Simulated scan of single mutants.
Amino acid sequence: MKVEVTIDRTKKLPAGAIPALQEELQKRLARRYEDCHIIVRQAGSDGLSVTGVEKDDKKLVEEILKETWESADDWFEVH
C-alpha cells in the first residue's frame, strides 16, 4: 500500500511537523498493514492518496490519518 498525504504549503506548521506526522502515521498504519509506504509533503493543497488497497481500507486510512492529526498534542513535541 502507498499513502501520500499532502499539506497545503500556506499552512503554518511547527518545525519538524511533517517528518513527525510521517513517522507517527507509519507507526499507526504498520499495526494494521505490514507493507505500507508513506509520504507526507507540502503541496498546493491538502490531499490524501491511497493506492494498493480496497475501498474499505482507504476509508480506514482516512480515519487513522484524522485520528493521528487530531491527537498531535499527544505525540508531537515542539522543540
Rank of each mutant, 00 (worst) to 15 (best):
residue 43 A to W: 03
residue 72 A to Q: 14
residue 3 V to D: 02
residue 37 H to C: 04
residue 25 L to Q: 05
residue 59 K to E: 11
residue 44 G to I: 08
residue 60 L to T: 11
residue 77 E to Q: 14
residue 16 G to I: 02
residue 41 R to N: 08
residue 15 A to Q: 12
residue 45 S to N: 12
residue 62 E to P: 01
residue 15 A to F: 07
residue 30 A to P: 00
residue 75 W to T: 05
residue 59 K to A: 11
residue 5 V to H: 04
residue 66 K to Q: 13
residue 10 T to R: 12
residue 56 D to S: 13
residue 31 R to E: 15
residue 37 H to L: 09
residue 52 G to R: 09
residue 33 Y to E: 03
residue 69 W to R: 10
residue 20 A to K: 08
residue 46 D to Y: 04
residue 33 Y to F: 15
residue 32 R to Q: 08
residue 16 G to W: 03
residue 8 D to G: 04
residue 52 G to T: 08
residue 52 G to C: 10
residue 42 Q to E: 15
residue 24 E to I: 07
residue 2 K to S: 06
residue 61 V to S: 02
residue 49 S to W: 06
residue 44 G to N: 14
residue 68 T to Y: 06
residue 26 Q to M: 08
residue 71 S to Y: 05
residue 58 K to A: 13
residue 29 L to C: 02
residue 19 P to D: 02
residue 10 T to A: 09
residue 32 R to K: 09
residue 26 Q to L: 07
residue 18 I to N: 03
residue 47 G to N: 10
residue 16 G to D: 00
residue 18 I to C: 03
residue 15 A to P: 10
residue 25 L to D: 05
residue 68 T to D: 10
residue 41 R to E: 13
residue 25 L to M: 09
residue 77 E to W: 05
residue 29 L to H: 05
residue 51 T to F: 01
residue 4 E to S: 08
residue 23 E to R: 09
residue 70 E to M: 14
residue 4 E to F: 00
residue 41 R to K: 15
residue 41 R to T: 12
residue 2 K to L: 07
residue 36 C to Y: 04
residue 44 G to R: 12
residue 34 E to Y: 00
residue 2 K to T: 12
residue 62 E to T: 07
residue 12 K to S: 11
residue 59 K to T: 12
residue 8 D to K: 08
residue 22 Q to D: 03
residue 3 V to E: 03
residue 68 T to P: 08
residue 29 L to G: 04
residue 62 E to A: 13
residue 55 K to H: 04
residue 60 L to N: 09
residue 45 S to R: 15
residue 25 L to K: 01
residue 6 T to F: 10
residue 18 I to M: 07
residue 43 A to K: 11
residue 77 E to I: 14
residue 34 E to G: 06
residue 78 V to E: 15
residue 64 I to M: 08
residue 35 D to R: 06
residue 37 H to M: 06
residue 30 A to S: 12
residue 70 E to K: 15
residue 57 D to I: 11
residue 30 A to T: 04
residue 16 G to E: 00
residue 71 S to M: 02
residue 5 V to F: 02
residue 63 E to Y: 12
residue 49 S to E: 13
residue 78 V to N: 13
residue 35 D to K: 10
residue 6 T to V: 06
residue 65 L to R: 10
residue 41 R to A: 14
residue 40 V to E: 06
residue 4 E to M: 06
residue 78 V to F: 06
residue 76 F to A: 00
residue 78 V to P: 02
residue 14 P to E: 14
residue 68 T to G: 01
